[in-house]
Amino acid sequence: MINGEKNLEKPIRWAMVGGGRGSQIGYIHRSAALRDHHFQLVAGSFDIDPDRGRDFGVNLHVDPKRCYPNDQTMFHEEGKREDGIQAVSIATPNSTHYEITKAALNAGLHVICEKPLCFTTQEAMELEKLAKEKERVVGITYGYSGHQMIEQARRMIENGDLGDIRIVNMQFAHGFHSAPVENDNASTKWRVDPKVAGPSYVLGDLGTHPLFLSEVMLPNFKIKKLMCSRQSFVKSRSPLEDNAFTIMEYENGAMAMIWCSCVNAGSMHGQKIRVIGSKASIEWWDEHPNQLRYEVQGRPAMTLDRGMDYLYSEALRDDRIAAGHSEGLFESWSNLYARFAKAMEKADRREAFNDVWYPGIEAGVEGVRWVENCVRSADQGAVWVDYQ
């Protein structure tokens, strides 16, 4: 159980690019990073408007001299300091991720980046190569994967509790954009602009989340081919989709499907993953993240609860409070930031950190690759394509 005691020798000196006043995701980053004393916020380039960003940073107790007008200036100036930043989180629109991540790595910094890491697999692989050359950690904020019941699912599958895995059924389908809300909402408007959002909307923004959950649970399953159909039900969003269905075949013959949508009217969040084996199935729903449904063929269905002694030990390590009390998204993100911090500390000490599981650069590359293949299939008329 995590109780807030010191895990690192010293907190990692940390900065943010983006995530300024009014940014919901920025607050989540800071809440997760600052918990448990893993990181210390010492600098930032919080806003495209330098004055507004400086005012915001000061209200976060950041030295006004270390509130910078842009990321390039911050990396340059912090590099001159003995107490300069060691890591940076990037919470800016999609189109900026590649250049900022590249600049941060070249400045010798660890990086935590919002997904997508970039727009093309070629760019993603370039960043992966650079991160390895610089021996820096790149974490991707697949924020739902820090829930303990995802780890429980991983261990159940690994230990054969479900038998041979046959089908993986995933969805992330909410209804909050079932009307053209982007007309009055700036934070949604850029998400449907190809110049800023990239080659997809819900495939990249939503679909990659359950995809990564499946990668956590089934780390050895590799996609062989897929077929994707995508639609723009709100026509002004075209060519970007607001709904998509993707069917996938794994190399071992198992099958999977992902439905991602922002026009599922009436749905609050609608992110679920169901893994079906030859003996049993499990299902996790992010609106009830403390439970995992476990269904053994021929027996009554069971609901497994977070924090209980019957879970695998790996699923209990990230508990922050006793069973019966609910944990949520902030705890999940905090668990990921704790993993990022441990990996960064080990990297700085030139120690192997293969034993530290976290959504790293490989997860970022795979998310970009999956979107690219889905778009290729959909744009050819929803045909099967070999996974490249």
Rank of each mutant, 00 (worst) to 15 (best):
N59A: 14
H288Y: 15
W333C: 13
G360A: 10
W14T: 06
W384R: 06
L316M: 05
R349T: 09
R66K: 10
T92C: 10
K346L: 13
K224T: 04
H174P: 01
V356F: 05
E295F: 10
R191F: 08
P116W: 10
G108C: 01
E78I: 08
G307M: 04
D71S: 15
F353P: 00
I140L: 15
W333A: 12
R349M: 15
R166M: 14
D49H: 02
Y98I: 02
A173F: 04
L336Q: 08
A91E: 05
L213M: 15
L203M: 15
D305W: 08
E331H: 08
I90A: 01
N7P: 00
R21I: 09
E331F: 03
E372V: 12
I90T: 00
P180F: 04
G108L: 00
R136K: 15
M149D: 04
V356Y: 03
E151Y: 10
D164F: 07
M170F: 05
E78S: 08
H269Y: 14
M125N: 14
P64D: 01
W259L: 15
S200E: 09
Y250I: 10
G143K: 02
P199D: 07
G253T: 13
G79S: 02
A107C: 09
M248F: 14
K225L: 09
I48K: 06
F56C: 04
H97F: 07
F46Q: 02
S232L: 02
E99K: 13
P289G: 04
H288D: 14
V365A: 06
A124R: 02
G19C: 02
R21G: 03
D71E: 12
D49S: 06
R317N: 06
I273T: 08
P93V: 04
H174K: 03
K224P: 00
L311F: 05
G20C: 09
S95K: 10
D319I: 11
N264A: 15
L336M: 10
M257K: 15
K346F: 11
Y310Q: 09
V216E: 04
S332P: 00
V88H: 01
E123S: 11
S145T: 15
R350F: 15
G364K: 04
D193A: 08
S31Y: 07
D184E: 14
E283F: 08
A280F: 05
S232W: 00
D348K: 05
N94S: 12
R299L: 14
A256F: 07
L226H: 04
G108V: 00
R293E: 11
S232M: 02
E82P: 03
R154V: 08
D348C: 07
G364V: 03
Y294L: 11
D36A: 07
A322I: 11
C113Y: 04
E182Y: 13
E158W: 07
R274T: 12
V137F: 05
D164W: 06
F340K: 01
W370P: 00
N159V: 09
N159I: 07
I361L: 10
L130K: 01
D305T: 13
S377N: 11
E362A: 15
R350G: 12
G298Q: 09
G20T: 05
E331L: 01
M149G: 06
A352G: 14
M255I: 13
D318S: 03
E182M: 11
R369I: 00
W357E: 06
S281L: 07
L109G: 01
R66W: 04
R376F: 13
Y294T: 11
A197M: 13
S281E: 10
P69V: 08
A186N: 03
E351G: 09
